[in-house]
Design a protein around this nucleic acid. Structure first.
Lengths: 246, 246
DNA sequence: TGTCCGACTTGATCCTGATCAATGTGATGT
DNA sequence: ACATCACATTGATCAGGATCAAGTCGGACA
């Protein structure tokens, strides 16, 4: 998944988003980026963009989580992207978002005015290269997600999501994925359902099932303890060798 | 979907794959690409690459259709990509395919040796830009596909697939999508099922259903006639305004 | 001409997850 | 302390697709 490390040195006041687009920033580039950037913050549940909205910026997630969703007329919705700190919003050469972008948790993004950002991209090829790399990573995770949506059972879907969230949390805080780990679900049951292509009732039932089976413990609605991560991963249906293909 | 037009002028002996990676080829670039390329052909059903295989090339589809699939241990598989002429196979900076690549129809691809191709990419930024554009297009269609897998009924899935294949056929031969159009399904029922996250029996039943409803006509197993494309599209569940977001 | 085989169709039944409905829980504010 | 509200759980029932099991069709080949 090639995420940017959560590390503030080298990049001054706005580290994450700079390094998200550029891992070899020189000071001229930093200065350029600084001059075209501004921040926006949203509360959990707020909409950042509606599908079809004009976008005058591209942006990078600084703090919190955002989702991309596609909707159908009758109200059915499917989440198609989950954006974490350092992930990129928007697309060079596109003026409108084809997706709803929603703040899942409280969210801060760093926006870059589109026109100058695109000009800068033309002048600094390694920014384009970095974007290509990030986009290919996103494509890979979209394809993994397609397998989940098309072929996994509700049970496997939930186990997969918990594994993803747990692993992500472990990486974020630079812990090795550990048995006995505790973390807070950043998603409501409804958001989990949208992610997994299920109803929120099914999500709730499956969570209760995993709890009864002793695979997870729940404290309140959001706090999850995973006593034995291998046991959870055994429920995902995934290949266990897990060797990342480079 | 930003596909390359099926047009041979300007690009000599190997037009499609060159223009797939480069819409502004100059002769030095063409010469360079020529020197590192070779062709491979496969029969329908043959495997091009197994997941995990070492890849010494990147490639571009010249003729025919290939699929990317993910498998699970127990044999369940999900198609995650359908590659048409001009589509790109492989990823700069990656040595093994994470997917099974299979020739859906008879297939010819044009391979470029990976090392020199990557070196060339570094020297010619518009190739990287073109790859970024293509990758973003693929990401968009993957996300559309996720909505289909997660939220559409079997009925809507089939209608969507037929619409996609019909539209694609119409574009390929530069016909305006037309009522009364006839085309051959390039996919077996099983491949359709893998594409849609269904079983082949369900695919078959839904096809029969559409036929009984008079929305499509079937001659033999593969030849499809669509008397009224709007009527088919009404079954997809999709937004009808269809304005491509640029 | 027959038979063989793979691709497809159709039928009967089962089961997972959706739907509809009621209830529970905890945080917030008054 | 209580009302309120959003979020979550649980139950009862239903239905869309999966599964298991025969059959059909059409082309290749002896």
């Amino acid at each position: 998944m090639n995420k940017i490390a959560f590390d503030t040195k080298n990049c001054g006041t706005c580290p994450i988003q700079h390094r998200a687009v550029c891992s070899h920033c020189d000071s001229a580039e930093l200065q350029m980026l600084d001059s075209i950037k501004y921040y926006r913050s949203y509360e959990a549940g707020q909409s950042v963009l509606w599908a079809g909205d004009h976008m005058e910026f591209v942006a990078s997630v600084v703090l919190g989580i955002a989702s991309l969703s596609q909707g159908m007329e009758d109200g059915r919705t499917q989440m198609v992207g989950l954006l974490l700190p350092s992930d990129f919003i928007g697309r060079p050469g596109r003026n409108a978002s084809p997706y709803d972008v929603v703040a899942v948790t409280d969210l801060t993004i760093c926006c870059f005015r589109k026109k100058p950002f695109e000009e800068m991209m033309l002048k600094t090829p390694h920014i384009a290269a970095r974007l290509l790399e990030m986009t290919l990573d996103e494509l890979d995770s979209a394809r993994e997600w397609m397998l989940l949506l098309g072929r996994k059972t509700a049970h496997e879907k939930i186990a997969s999501l918990l594994t993803i969230l747990a692993t992500r949390d472990a990486n974020l805080y630079k812990k090795i994925p550990l048995d006995g780990m505790v973390f807070d679900l950043p998603l409501t049951r409804e958001a989990m359902a949208d992610y997994l292509g299920l109803t929120l009732e099914t999500v709730s039932r499956q969570m209760s099932g995993l709890k009864k089976a002793g695979i997870i413990q729940l404290e309140g609605k959001r706090r999850v303890t995973i006593p034995d991560i291998a046991r959870l991963m055994a429920e995902t249906g995934d290949d266990m060798d897990g060797g990342m293909l480079v």
